[in-house]
C-alpha cells in the first residue's frame, strides 16, 4: 500500500495515473477474493462486495495511512464499516492492505474463523467496530474524531455506510453532532447502490436528495461515480483539503454486482443468489471486465 504522510497529498496527473493503475489492480483482487470467500459458503453479500470494491480499493490501496503489521498503530486512519454484512469485501481489502493473510480468506464464515459473516472488531485485526446493527458507525466515528482531536492526533476517521442505513435516525443525530463539533477529521462514505432488504432504497424509503440533506446538516459533500477511481481519489483529496471545519461526506453511486456483467444484469436483490456452476463464469467475466 501507499504510505500517506500528509493530509492532502497533491497528485500530479502522471502520479494519479500510476496510482489509479495500482488501485485498479487492487480492486480486481478485492472482487476476486470476495468471489473466493462467497464460494466457500456458496453464498454471501456478493452484490454489495462487488459494488463497494472500488471504494475500498481507493481507501485501502491508496488513501488510508495504515501499518499492515500493526493494525492498532496510534497514527493510523480509522476506517469504520457500519455495514457489517459487507464483511467479505472488507476482508478482501484488509488482505490487499496486508493486514490479514490472503490465504485466511478461505476460512470466511467457517466455525472458529477470525472472519465471521458480519464484521466484528473482536474477531478480526483491522476491523475497527462491530457493524451490522445499522446507524451505529457514524455515532462512534464522532467519538473517535473527538478523541483524536483531544490527543492532537492528525489521523482521519472514515465511516463507510450505506444508502439504506440512512433510514436509521441515529445517523442524523450523528450528522448533527459532527457538524456542531466541527469534526473536519471525519469523512462519511455513503455506498449508494440503491438496494436494501426490501427493494430499491429509493422505493423503500427514499432519503434523496442525500447530498442536500448532509449539506443542510452542515457537511461538505461530494457525489461521484463510485466506480470512477480517479474521481474517487480526487474527491477524497479535495474533501480533506477543505479549509473549513465541516465534517465531510462522499456519496459514491455504485452498481450492485459491478464487474461481473451477468450479476449486474440479474434481478437486484439484497442477498444475491449465485448457483454452484456460476462461480467459474463469474471469475471469467471479472477477468474480462478488469483487463
Amino acid at each position: 500500500m501507499t504510505e500517506r504522510t500528509t493530509l492532502a497529498r497533491p497528485a500530479t496527473d502522471d502520479d494519479l495515473d500510476t496510482r489509479v493503475q495500482h488501485i485498479k489492480e487492487a480492486a480486481f483482487r478485492i472482487r476476486r477474493n470476495a468471489l473466493v470467500q462467497a464460494e466457500v459458503q456458496g453464498q454471501g453479500y456478493i452484490g454489495q462486495a462487488l459494488d463497494v470494491a472500488d471504494v475500498l480499493a481507493v481507501l485501502y490501496a491508496d488513501q488510508l495511512n495504515l501499518r499492515p503489521d500493526d493494525p492498532e498503530w496510534e497514527g493510523r486512519d480509522r476506517c469504520l464499516l457500519s455495514i457489517g454484512h459487507y464483511a467479505l469485501a472488507l476482508y478482501a481489502a484488509l488482505a490487499e492492505a496486508g493486514v490479514i493473510p490472503e490465504a485466511e480468506l478461505q476460512t470466511y464464515a467457517c466455525d472458529d474463523s477470525r472472519l465471521p459473516m458480519s464484521a466484528m472488531a473482536s474477531y478480526t485485526p483491522g476491523v475497527e467496530i462491530s457493524g451490522g446493527s445499522l446507524g451505529h458507525g457514524l455515532t462512534i466515528a464522532n467519538g473517535i474524531a473527538l478523541g483524536l482531536k483531544r490527543k492532537g492526533n492528525p489521523a482521519t476517521v472514515y465511516n463507510i455506510l450505506s444508502d439504506g442505513e440512512l433510514g436509521e435516525g441515529s445517523t442524523w443525530e450523528a450528522a448533527a453532532v459532527a457538524a456542531h463539533h466541527g469534526l473536519d477529521n471525519l469523512i462519511a462514505v455513503v455506498d449508494f447502490n440503491d438496494q436494501q432488504a426490501d427493494g430499491k432504497s429509493t422505493s423503500v424509503l427514499s432519503m434523496e436528495p442525500v447530498g442536500a440533506k448532509f449539506e443542510a446538516f452542515g457537511w461538505a459533500v461530494r457525489r461521484v461515480d463510485g466506480h470512477d477511481l480517479a474521481g474517487l481519489v480526487r474527491a477524497f483529496e479535495e474533501l480533506r483539503a477543505l479549509p473549513d471545519d465541516r465534517p465531510r461526506c462522499l456519496i459514491a453511486d455504485t452498481t450492485l454486482g459491478k464487474g461481473v456483467p451477468f450479476l449486474e444484469a440479474r434481478e437486484k436483490l439484497h442477498f444475491m443468489q449465485v448457483a454452484a456452476d456460476e462461480w467459474a463464469k463469474a471469475h471469467d467475466q471479472l477477468k474480462e471486465t478488469s483487463a
Binding site: 446507524g135 462512534i140 467519538g143 473517535i144 450523528a174 456542531h180
Partner: peptide
C-alpha cells in the same frame, strides 16, 4: 444534544481512543 444514541456512540468512540 438531545440525542441519546449519538451520546452512547460518541462515548464508545472516545473510550476506543483511550
Amino acid at each position: 444534544g438531545m440525542s441519546e444514541q449519538a451520546l452512547l456512540g460518541a462515548a464508545a468512540g472516545l473510550a476506543m481512543e483511550g
